[in-house]
């Protein structure tokens, strides 16, 4: 187990390094350097600069040294927690990123807290008696909610609960400080969009387990049906949905741009979008790197968790 985790961690570092190298190389073109100069000195000043003066600026910014040297400088800084400077927001990237990640974290946590129990319960109920009326209703509900795009759900919810009934705030900008009410609509939107997918996965897994021979053994052993489900079926049926849920972390980090932008929620996805439009190169780099780290980490959690849940893999 320790060996497995160690091996995975080393793989993770390698993947992150490769990703960072690509990320650095993409933005290391003369055009982006010039853009940087424009952001720092202003458009007029840069167009007035002579080639010599521009070269001097490059030298001053340390942009004239060889590529690999600059790459290692950049990585070195990042390791020390210096992610560079956002020209758009006019503040260091590090703290900015921390704020936004925290916001997205709160959102994701709320989504998970609702989505996991709902989808697992529905999935298990549905898979337990495949083909029953309950199963059909749950299947219909999951397919229906998942096939509506988030933006549509967001609009409908806003129209009904914010504009129509006036029960909830329509925007989640949290200008006057943290307000849990402002979280309700974005969280609901995401849960409605996502729970169906996980419920379907759980259903498939549960249905397969319920038709397996060891469930037949358990039933014909004469133990109560409740225990068959709780003790024999659940553990095996939850292995597959577990990995799916962990991998949802990626999606909740960077895949929820639409919802964050729609509700004006200051999260990580919105930051990435704004930085890309500006373009705020160092923010984009930092955000992308964070996304890579989260993606790789969730993979590891999912693998290790899978191994832990599945004794067949744990001991071989």
């Amino acid at each position: 187990m320790v060996k497995l985790i160690g091996r995975r961690l080393i793989q993770m570092v390698l993947i992150i390094l490769v990703a960072s190298l690509l990320l650095f190389a993409i933005f290391d073109t003369p055009e982006f350097k010039r853009r940087l100069a424009v952001q720092e000195l202003g458009g007029f000043a840069v167009s007035a600069l002579s080639q010599d003066a521009y070269n001097e600026w490059l030298a001053r910014r340390g942009l004239d040294v060889p590529f690999y040297q600059r790459y290692f400088n950049w990585i070195g800084k990042i390791v020390q927690g210096d992610f560079g400077f956002s020209y758009e927001k006019n503040r260091p990237v590090g703290p900015l990123l921390a704020d936004r990640l925290a916001n997205t974290g709160i959102l994701a946590l709320c989504v998970f807290a609702l989505m996991i129990p709902i989808s697992l319960t529905l999935g298990v109920l549905s898979g337990m008696r495949e083909g029953s009326g309950l199963d059909r209703s749950i299947t219909f509900l999951s397919v229906f909610t998942t096939s509506i795009p988030e933006i549509a759900t967001a609009i409908i919810l806003t129209v009904v609960f914010a504009l129509g009934l006036g029960l909830l705030p329509a925007k989640s900008a949290m200008i006057a400080g943290f307000d849990p009410w402002q979280l309700v609509l974005p969280v609901l939107t995401l849960v409605i969009y996502d729970f169906g997918y996980v419920a379907r996965m759980t259903r498939a897994s549960m249905a397969e387990v319920m038709t397996s021979q060891y469930i037949r053994t358990a039933i014909l052993k004469g133990i109560p049906y409740r225990r068959v489900v709780m003790k024999h079926a659940l553990r095996n049926a939850l292995i597959a949905p577990f990995t799916v849920i962990v991998l949802q972390m990626n999606w909740l980090l960077s895949g929820v741009v639409v919802v964050e932008v729609f509700f004006e929620y200051d999260g990580f996805g919105k930051l990435l979008l704004e930085a890309a439009l500006f373009p705020d190169v160092e923010v984009v780099q930092a955000c992308t790197l964070v996304a890579v780290v989260v993606a790789v980490t969730s993979q590891i959690i999912s693998d290790v968790g899978y191994t832990f849940l599945n004794p067949r893999i744990r001991f071989s």
Binding site: R216, T217, I223, R235, N236, P311
Partner: peptide
């Protein structure tokens, strides 16, 4: 249920598939 496993018991063709892998 009270009969199964106590009065009537069964042995199956594939022992591996008949035992719960996670227990």
């Amino acid at each position: 249920r009270l009969l199964r496993g106590s009065q009537i018991a069964m042995v199956y063709q594939e022992p591996m598939a008949s035992l719960n892998p996670a227990m």
